[in-house]
């Protein structure tokens, strides 16, 4: 079997598994899986910045949060039509990225990370203080599942899972197209060497700005799904600790691959469920996992697998197609 058909087969198997999951899993298991898919979109979008553009952004939860708050505030005012709230949430995240991008992309490296961190904290503080709009630290509770204009109730968790699955599939497809397009290739070029890309006549600032906005848009999509999944939004959902957790998911799964972050989300949620059953010290474990990952497993799970695969191929075949993703 050639590698190409085997990977196609693998893909088919994964899709089939995802489709039959609701018939196999308990409602609890399915809810965890729904959450994995939602955070999968979020982690993939952060990976566009960290893994593909080389921008280590410390406030990715801001985009999830602003979108989720937008949907939550609309829900409080009785607007619950999915086809209205979905674009509203995404547009809120896009607008934030357009404004913030102008500020944070003026700098690079150390300044970039400090400023993203600081502005993330600003939005957190704003959500905390602007009580009349956001409910302050109580957050917004009782957000119902959306109406999608079809005679299908989203209160049924099977149906909601499929809704999330559709958007996850679309996001995965769109993002993989995006990184393979010539635009995506130039963005990877910026990661590799910004000065060389400038010398080649690319407007690297515009490329970074675009990647920033694209990533925010998908994080906004995740925010809409997240708030409908949770039925609740509070300032914690745009805090630094959530941003850090998403970053850890990307790193543990493998930055610079699309599937890696999704696997990372799965690993972290499984660990969280397991550890939280025994101890309340989950943040301590996040920290320890973070440190271990950065020190010993910087390429993540998928990075490790790719390395193994490359080694195997070098042994078996003549050095031919090195290209893999």
């Amino acid at each position: 079997m050639t590698p190409c058909t085997s990977s196609r087969l693998l893909r088919l198997v994964v899709i089939l598994i995802l489709l039959v999951l609701p018939f196999v899993l308990s409602s609890y298991g399915l809810s965890i899986f729904t959450k994995v898919l939602i955070f999968g979109i979020l982690a993939m979008s952060l990976d566009i910045l960290i893994g593909y553009t080389g921008l280590v952004s410390f406030n990715h939860a801001s985009f999830l949060g602003i979108s989720a708050y937008t949907v939550g505030i609309l829900a409080v005012h009785g607007i619950n039509n999915f086809w209205l709230t979905l674009p509203a949430g995404i547009i809120a995240a896009l607008l934030l990225a357009m404004v913030l991008g102008l500020l944070v992309l003026r700098s690079s490296d150390a300044y970039f990370l400090m400023i993203t961190l600081a502005f993330g904290q600003m939005l957190y503080a704003l959500a905390w203080r602007w009580r009349s709009l956001t409910g302050g630290d109580d957050g917004l509770a009782g957000i119902p599942r959306p109406e999608i204009g079809l005679p299908i109730s989203m209160n049924d968790y099977h149906n909601f899972y499929y809704l999330v699955l559709i958007f996850f599939g679309l996001s995965f497809y769109a993002l993989s197209k995006f990184i393979r397009s010539s635009l995506g290739r130039s963005i990877i070029g910026v990661r590799e060497s910004e000065s060389r890309m400038q010398a080649l006549g690319y407007n690297t600032w515009a490329l970074k700005y675009l990647a920033y906005i694209v990533a925010a848009g998908f994080a906004g999509l995740a925010g809409v799904l997240f708030v409908y999944f949770n039925g609740f939004i509070s300032p914690e959902d745009l805090s630094w600790s959530l941003s850090g957790m998403i970053m850890l998911m990307v790193i543990i799964g493998g930055a610079g691959t699309l599937i890696g972050p999704v696997i990372g989300v799965g690993v972290i949620f499984i660990l969280q469920n397991f550890i939280s059953a025994y101890t309340e010290r989950w943040p301590l474990f996040i920290g320890i996992i973070f440190v271990i990952c950065v020190m010993y497993a910087r390429n993540g799970i998928v990075g490790y697998l790719l390395k193994l695969e490359a080694k195997r191929r070098r042994c078996n075949e003549s050095p031919g197609s090195k290209e893999h993703l």
Binding site: G244, G287, I289
Partner: peptide, 8 residues
């Protein structure tokens, strides 16, 4: 990133 892990 290491220092960030230590915050937790």
């Amino acid at each position: 990133l290491l220092t960030f892990g230590f915050i937790y």
